[in-house]
Design a protein around this nucleic acid. Sequence first.
DNA 1: ATTTAACCGAGACGGTACGTCCCGTCTTTAC
DNA 2: GTAAAGACGGGACGTACCGTCTCGGTTAAAT
Lengths: 179, 179, 179, 179
Amino acid sequence: MTRTGRPAGPASDTTATVLTAALDLLLAEGAGALTAQRLHQVTGVSRSTIYRHWPTPNDVLAALIDVAPSPRRQPSGDLAQDLHAEIDALCDRLRDKPVAAFLRALVAADAGLRHRYVEDLLAPVQAVLRDAGTPRAAAEDAVAAIVSPLLVDALLLDRPTARARAHRAVDLYLTEAAR
Amino acid sequence: MTRTGRPAGPASDTTATVLTAALDLLLAEGAGALTAQRLHQVTGVSRSTIYRHWPTPNDVLAALIDVAPSPRRQPSGDLAQDLHAEIDALCDRLRDKPVAAFLRALVAADAGLRHRYVEDLLAPVQAVLRDAGTPRAAAEDAVAAIVSPLLVDALLLDRPTARARAHRAVDLYLTEAAR
Amino acid sequence: MTRTGRPAGPASDTTATVLTAALDLLLAEGAGALTAQRLHQVTGVSRSTIYRHWPTPNDVLAALIDVAPSPRRQPSGDLAQDLHAEIDALCDRLRDKPVAAFLRALVAADAGLRHRYVEDLLAPVQAVLRDAGTPRAAAEDAVAAIVSPLLVDALLLDRPTARARAHRAVDLYLTEAAR
Amino acid sequence: MTRTGRPAGPASDTTATVLTAALDLLLAEGAGALTAQRLHQVTGVSRSTIYRHWPTPNDVLAALIDVAPSPRRQPSGDLAQDLHAEIDALCDRLRDKPVAAFLRALVAADAGLRHRYVEDLLAPVQAVLRDAGTPRAAAEDAVAAIVSPLLVDALLLDRPTARARAHRAVDLYLTEAAR
DNA sequence: ATTTAACCGAGACGGTACGTCCCGTCTTTAC
DNA sequence: GTAAAGACGGGACGTACCGTCTCGGTTAAAT
């Protein structure tokens, strides 16, 4: 096959326009607002174009997540310090909205996306534990006990994530592990 | 004033018909299916009637929750035993679907309903702890660490609730408290 | 079956509004304009309503035809006089537009409708001949020779129907039959 | 001046590809299918190219008609024989579809094209009569009476053209003229 | 037994969103 | 200079649902 003609370039800057607007919508009105119609109204980009590139709202959500930066921090080597730092970072992300909004959106969305996103969220903490030589099962218990309450705060109770409680949970785990 | 005519009774058994169908719908297709239209198709009850009694889908959801029995168990007095029993009961409820479905539905619904429902879910465990004289803050930490992972399993990770892990968490709390 | 509730009445006066507008549209812009969209723009009746009652443009056309009066004239008994009168009437109908417009519209429409309409158009002439005792085959030949040119004028050549020519054809038939 | 690049020729065999496909489409689905989009799907020729050469569906139709061969037969000199032969030829063309399809298409299309096409269709018969010295008015009457019924059969009644009736009409004209 | 208020079904109506399709224009690339 | 590929805005199409409404029937209490 000769593969002639203009190559399948993505959009122009349409992508940028739409996705930033989509993020705003997600934060302001929730996942239900990630509609072709709604995005059209907000961005002025035509409905056809939006359907062309993101046939379903789920596709918009996926694109948003792909764009979102997942920050990397380098470990100091000290388990306690690294754990506390990681938890602080997670609380920050949850407080600063997009992540919490993503979570709520994902409850109603594709299971694949949802799992991927949550695992990505848990990964850093799990990595710290594993680097410190924690056995796999114990690490998972710890992550669950420490991180899940934060997610529940953001997802179900609409309250600021209980940062202090999370740090207490970390300390509990550390003293337990030291024994 | 003569106050004659048929008194403003509720419906006949329409209520039962509609609400059981609504529960089925909720379990099978999610909260998005709790539509007047949809309920009409499924039950044969006319659209008008449904709008009359439950003007919005949220009202259907609320009615469903009000109907759902929240089981009461009487404490044996032994903290450890009671805690484990309560956790088992919660896992059962989450495994048997309706509760998990309610939770998913409520993520996208009215905040008031959501808070009420989650608190009701946590209440029994909290009650056991409080009856044993646990200080309020410690009790909340424990509940968070023990129950939240179960909710995350059901809501975000679509896995059967990790019953064993929950029991380990209970034990961890008990030994910690004993110290 | 108890047959309860409001009986399936047709529309209110929606029908009248829409159909008169439809006739105007048909005459002014041709069959292609008998669209739900177009009818909505012109009448203000909502698109939903139009789709409800006339799901396809063809249904509108059919309704129009059903409404259109097909005039009845009583025969004098004199073959020549009746034939000429019938032809004059037909020419009038073709000149006064709706019938010609219907014909053009029907070329692109449902075959059933088309046949019915054309037969209705030919029927009066055929009736006159049959009443005079003309054998069936001869009558059909005559009708074809006399009427078809008028239809072709209106349908394909966009010229006023050649009334004089039609009358000459009638005379030709009469003298031929007399022989 | 160096006159470089590909010379401004028309297309390669694109024209052939597209027009034959267009004819198939016309016969199979009617004039409404002569769309740039549709032609692209069927031929593989790109939409751009089609728009370049035939900006509107009408242009495709016109091109089709220009391509269609309008057969020429040489007169024997005998009026009766030539007339019958000409009518036979016309019936054949109407039976073999493309001509009938063209006619239907043209009812909804450009008036100019339509007139031209119909006149071309009538021309051979008219020519035979004129060559035999028939006065203009009489010739037009005869053509109308003989040919119009065939067109009505094909266009409005969807029946095979009544060849026998046409020949009878010819005979009627001939005896009438002989008198 | 009659009255009378409430319930219930059926459906008309306007409105909005959805997802698909087509249109016509354009830009970019390859030949 | 022609062709291919496709982005883009625009609009129609047919469907589905929504919420409101007006009717007509049915029912069950209160008189």
